[in-house]
Amino acid sequence: MTQPALLNRLTFRQLQVFQTVYRQHSYSRAAAELGLTQPAVSAQIRQLEQALGQSLFKYAGKTLHILPPADALAESIGTIFGEIASLQMALSKLTGTLRGELNIAAVSTAQYIVPHILARFRARYPEVRLRLRVVNRNEALAHLAERSDDLVIMGMAPEDTDLTFMSIMDNDLLPIVWPGHPLLNTEQPTPEAFSRYQVLMREPGSGTRMALEKYAHQQQLALDHKLELGTSEAIKQGVMAQLGVAVLPRMAVQLELQSGLLAVPELPGFPLRHSWGVVQHRERYPTPITEAFMQLLRELLPELEQLFNAPLAPRSAPAFTCLP
């Protein structure tokens, strides 16, 4: 099929529906996200397949299989939609305002700092629509591979030459126990003593868990007694319930430490120091909005360090205003 004929038969709606089905691996989930019926989604995909002259998906039972032409189309669509977004942003910039959308994925431990960054960005660029998705580390890596978000905020930079990592803040990991725990009354508590208790951990692949497992390897600890919980919040509650001990980011437990609901024994080697950072794919073209976000972030670094290193207290009225 010649290029003009293909251009005349394709619609942006078909491409949008395809992209959602491709990402969701499901017609029904795509329909729910787009606010369409499943037959409407099926019809759009069928029309797209007719225009391309190739099948994109195949159901085997209840499982949707992605065919090779769909992978090629998904890569092209990412470029097409990226160029359209850049055009929209460039046009809005000519009018003196910045309009468009900024999609950010952040690992769950970074959710304590990202809203403070977004509040300042929103105050400066009120016409930009913000979308934040909180994910685990494996999901964050998948988002980077799929280039489905403009920016990903995570800890422990991935070892991938296709990615760039800009450190934004230290992520100190602390050993956490409940008040009155025997380790708090021990003059020199050891890592071995800590590991004899049940250690509450995140899922495999979590940055926090990877840091703890690296520490355990260095200290030659077996971590024979461990219990996997799904979120940092569940782990905090587990420690407070005396279900076990844990290693968590300082920012995740600041309120509980200050209020005396949790405590930190003085173990050698702690805090474990890592950094949160902004990760981008080198092949994802930076839009004016992502460039504006990164510029603001560089300006904010000293303020953020001061904000999160100060004792927790009610904050006075900020020097910026966020309006709907």
Rank of each mutant, 00 (worst) to 15 (best):
Val21Thr: 03
Tyr22His: 13
Ser28Asp: 12
Arg29Leu: 11
Ala31Asp: 05
Ala32Asp: 13
Leu36Val: 02
Leu36His: 05
Gln38Lys: 14
Val41Gly: 01
Val41Ser: 01
Ser42Ala: 11
Ile45Lys: 00
Arg46His: 10
Arg46Asp: 00
Gln50Ala: 14
Ala51His: 03
Leu52Glu: 03
Gly53Arg: 02
Gly53Trp: 00
Leu56Pro: 04
Phe57Glu: 05
Lys58Asn: 11
Gly61Thr: 02
Thr63Phe: 04
His65Lys: 14
Leu67Thr: 09
Leu67Ser: 10
Pro68Phe: 05
Pro68Leu: 08
Ala72Met: 13
Ala72Tyr: 12
Ala74Asn: 13
Ser76Met: 13
Ile77Lys: 07
Thr79Asn: 10
Phe81Cys: 08
Glu83Asp: 15
Gln88Met: 12
Ala90Val: 09
Thr97Cys: 09
Arg99Lys: 11
Gly100Ala: 10
Leu102Arg: 08
Leu102Val: 07
Asn103Asp: 15
Ile104Leu: 12
Ala105Glu: 13
Ala110Glu: 09
Ala110Val: 04
Gln111Ser: 15
Pro115Met: 02
Leu118Ile: 15
Ala119Tyr: 03
Ala119Arg: 15
Arg120Tyr: 05
Phe121Pro: 05
Tyr125Phe: 15
Glu127Ile: 02
Val128Gly: 04
Leu132Asn: 07
Asn136Glu: 11
Asn138Gly: 05
Ala140Glu: 05
Leu141Ala: 03
Ala142Val: 12
His143Lys: 13
Leu144Phe: 07
Ala145Thr: 13
